[in-house]
């Protein structure tokens, strides 16, 4: 399983791996936001936490269809299914690799982008923490969506349609933590709920993803 993680990470940083694309997309979303809502720093400051969460979520979405599709096309997924590791393990590792190449860089870059959007100083810490806790759920849920659509030729748009409603709870609690943190309000409850959702999806969803992959390979 470590071998699979190492291979996926190696693939993502080599030519054509797409590492950094999500980060660049995130930067573009953040740059475009003031063009759309106006350069008023007070306005930007109130919506900064939400925009950063939404931007991170959309950037995450961008790379979901690569999680499994490449391995499906060249037959590697089929061979992984015959290898002595459970498909649940494959689904977990795939989600982990996606998080390490997408969610983690986004989390680390978010404070810098927060400066661009005039995020209040109190908000930086909780924005980063909420993204660090929330983005693993985005990767795991995204892997599930990728598993459902892996057999389809043009699954990209469908994947977004399926995954985005599943992102609703994570987005609500994640953005709530960031927003309340920025406004200096109590954020313990949404933080606990966000962590709960992440833990539950990490623990349970790989089983559904593995089932979907097996069905698609049949």
């Amino acid at each position: 399983m470590i071998a699979l993680l190492k291979r996926d990470l190696a693939l993502s940083v080599r030519a054509g791996g797409g590492f950094g694309l999500a980060l660049a997309f995130f930067l573009i979303v953040v740059t475009l936001t003031p063009f759309a809502v106006g350069p008023n720093s007070a306005t930007l400051s109130t919506i900064a936490a939400g925009i950063l969460w939404l931007g991170a979520l959309l950037s995450c979405l961008l790379s979901l269809d690569r999680i499994l599709a490449l391995d499906y096309e060249d037959g590697a997924l089929e061979l992984l299914a015959t290898a002595p590791i459970p498909m649940e393990g494959v689904a977990t590792i795939k989600a982990l690799a996606h998080w390490l190449t997408t969610g983690l860089p986004l989390t680390l870059a978010a404070p810098a982008f927060g400066v661009l959007l005039n995020l209040p100083p109190e908000g930086f810490l909780w924005l980063t923490i909420s993204l660090a806790i929330g983005t693993p759920a985005l990767s795991v849920v995204g892997t599930f969506g990728a598993a459902l659509t892996v057999g389809l030729k043009r699954g990209g748009l469908l994947l977004s349609l399926i995954v985005l409603p599943l992102y609703v709870p994570t987005l609500i609690f994640g953005a709530e933590v960031a927003r309340r943190g920025a406004e200096g309000m109590a954020f313990e409850t949404p933080l606990a709920l966000l962590a709960g959702i992440t833990l539950a999806t990490v623990a349970l969803l790989p089983f559904a993803s593995a089932a979907a992959i097996r069905i698609n390979l049949r």
């Binding site: 599930f144 459902l148 399926i162 409603p165 599943l166 609703v168 709870p169 609500i172 609690f173 709530e176 409850t189 949404p190 709920l193 959702i197 969803l205 559904a208 089932a211 979907a212 069905i215 698609n216």
Partner: peptide, 22 residues
């Protein structure tokens, strides 16, 4: 696949409902 989606979706629909009330 739609059955799997329906089951997972149901859990997330309930979660979303409570998240929205919150």
């Amino acid at each position: 696949l739609t059955s799997v989606l329906c089951i997972v979706g149901s859990v997330f629909a309930v979660l979303s409902r409570y998240a929205l009330v919150f």
